[in-house]
Structure formats: C-alpha cells, structure tokens
Nucleic acid binder design. Structure first.
Lengths: 193, 193
DNA sequence: CCTACCGATCGGTAGG
DNA sequence: CCTACCGATCGGTAGG
C-alpha cells in the first residue's frame, strides 16, 4: 500500500512524498530538505523536476477540486428526485475522498497557503461546488421531499460531515467506501426529510 | 467587537493577537515578528510576557479542551434520556465554539504542532471527549431510542458536523447560538432515530 | 543529480 | 520595552 511498485517518475515520487508530509506536518512546517531526504536526494535537486514548493500545493488543490466537480457530472441532467441527487452527490464526494486519501486532507487544510491569483480562483471553485449541493437540496425542497427552513445551514452541515471522513479514512478495512457513503446518505437524508 | 475596550493586560493582548494570526495564517506560518508588529512592539519584547511561541498554542489547546469537558458536567448524573443527553451535549459543544470563535479554530487545526509530552496528553483528552459522546449515543441505543449499527461512525459524523460550524460562525447575526444548536440537534437526532 | 552558496527569516537570548 | 545579535533554517539559484 505504501508503494504500488509501479514505476513512478521522479516527479511523481516527489509529489507523493510532499503530499504525505504536507498532510502530516502541514504545508508551512514542511521543508524542501525533508522532502528531499525522504527520497535520498539533496533539496537543490528537487528543482530539476518541480518549479517551486507552492506549485505542488497548487496542483493538489486544483486537481482535487476538479475531481469533485467531475463527480457531479450528469446528476442534474437525469430525472432524479432530490433525494437521488443528494444521494448521488454524497456517493461521488466520498468516492473522491476515498481515492485521494492524502491529497484531500491537504486540499481541505492547506489551501489557505496558496498565493494570488490561485487563492481567489480556488475559493471561487469551492463556492461553486457548495452551490451545486445547495441546488440539489433546493430541488428536493421544491418537490416537497425535504422539510428545511435554512438551506445554507443544511448544506454546510452535510458537506462538513462528508469532509470530516477524510480524517479517519485510515481506519479502513472495517467499512468499504460504498458502505460509508450509504451510511452517511442514510443518516443525513433521514435527518432532513 | 474587535476590542471590547476593557483593559487587557499586555499578556492577554499578545494571546489575543496570536490566536487571530494562528487562525488566519496557521501556527507554523505565523512569526513572532508579525505578532509583535500588530502590537507595535519588537519581537524580543514579547518574551517579557510569554515563555515561547508554543506556550501560546499549549494554552489555547488545553483551555478549549477543558471547556469542552466542563460543558458535559452533570449530563449523565440526571435522569436524562439518550436523546436529551445528546441534545444537551450538542448545545454545550456549540456553546463552547460560539464563546471561543477564534480559539476553537486553532484548537481544531493547529494541535498537531504541539511538542511532546503535550501532544500525547492532548490526543488523550480528545479521545476521552469523543468517548463521552459515544456513551450518550450508546445509552440511547440501549434504551431503544436510536437505530444505529455503527456507533463509532455515527459519533464521528455528529462531532464533525458540530466542529465544522466553527468555520462559518463569522456569518453570525442570522442565527443565534441557540438556534444553531437547536437546528443541528434536530437534524442529527432525527437522522439517527 | 551534486556542491556551494544566496539573502531572508526564524525563535529566542543577553544585557540593559 | 529596546538594541544588538545568536545559530539554525528557509526556499531557491548558479554552474557544472
């Protein structure tokens, strides 16, 4: 599980190592010399493969953001009910978290260290994604499926429950990714219905 | 709201400033010179009032942890049902967050920068607190109030929803602290009942 | 991929 | 509360 033994390029190795360190120690507290040491290199050599420390953070943040967006594709084109939309969105969201265990933690906790204009772009993407969830719930309200008086509040509560799973996804084995999504979907949809 | 104009000691001013900076930029990325500048001092002068940068983080983390614990006092001594226990715990938790808006964000996001033995003590406290929530839910299950097959999972989901409120407590005015707690309690208890 | 090195900044101390 | 300063470390570059 640590190394899939598939040939990773040096650049991929650097990214992988950096992501793990950013996750465990935080972006600001992680030094280029730590990343290099983990790969038996000198810090200066990293710069043959990457442009800067922040470039790594940028790639992580926007890659994850785009994965979250892609997961929602098709949800509103169908004849799904509100419940089905939320259920599908929850499954997609958990799927992205499960497939990017370490990246997602960096995405959630370290985005504030992005410089401009990336920071503004990022928060814009985040807002748009939250709005998609909001639309699905709104759809369910309009169809009489949900009884909710505060849309923003409910949306944030649901997203927070989903995001928090990233913190203890390490304790895997007990539950499959689908079981986790099913369970969350049940708890949350029952709670607002 | 920025400064209550009540006479703060210099030490209190330093703490207040540091907490705000730790919250916005992160502990590792905040320098002592930034804290000092905010107070029109030189960094070296801070050390007449505090012992170290980490001492501030320690005070914040353990102060908040103890507040969370104190809030639970008396809940299990009463003849409360499971629902009432969870409801009371939720209200207490939200109360601590509301009364420590900035501190709680530092508590939640920056504790990993504690050195030993503080780090171990802290995670121990956190586990104990989570276990208290777990007990309340367990109590409700045993009394037939809740239908839950995964206690750990449900506990973490509830706590995550509560903790996430710290991220958008700034948008206050719309809802009072009690309304927030009431609403969360409704959503979450309905979701597991 | 390395050695050598840059200027900047870090948390913190000495001594007043 | 200041000036002056410490050794350590930071992200990154030059040049090979």
């Amino acid at each position: 599980m640590v190394d899939t033994t598939i040939k990773l390029t040096r650049k991929e190795q650097i990214y992988k190592t950096a992501i793990l360190l950013f996750k465990n120690r935080g972006y600001a507290a992680t030094g280029m010399r730590e990343i290099a040491k983990e790969l038996d290199m000198k810090a200066a050599s990293l710069y043959s493969h990457i442009k800067s420390k922040e470039e790594i953070l940028q790639q992580v943040c926007f890659d994850v953001a785009h994965q979250f967006f892609n997961g929602l594709e098709g949800i509103e084109k169908t004849n799904f009910t509100g419940k089905m939309r939320i259920d599908a969105a929850i499954h997609s969201h958990i799927n992205v978290i499960a497939k990017n265990r370490h990246k997602v933690v960096v995405f959630l906790n370290e985005w504030k260290h992005l410089g401009e204009p990336y920071l503004s772009d990022f928060t814009e993407l985040r807002n748009q994604y939250e709005n998609r969830f909001k639309e699905y719930i709104k759809y369910g309200i309009d169809k009489g499926e949900f009884e909710i008086d505060d849309l923003d509040f409910t949306t944030f509560t649901i997203l927070s429950s989903l995001n928090w799973t990233s913190n203890w996804f390490k304790r895997e084995g007990k539950m499959t990714e689908k079981e986790i999504a099913d369970k969350l979907s049940t708890i949350l949809i029952k709670g607002i219905s």
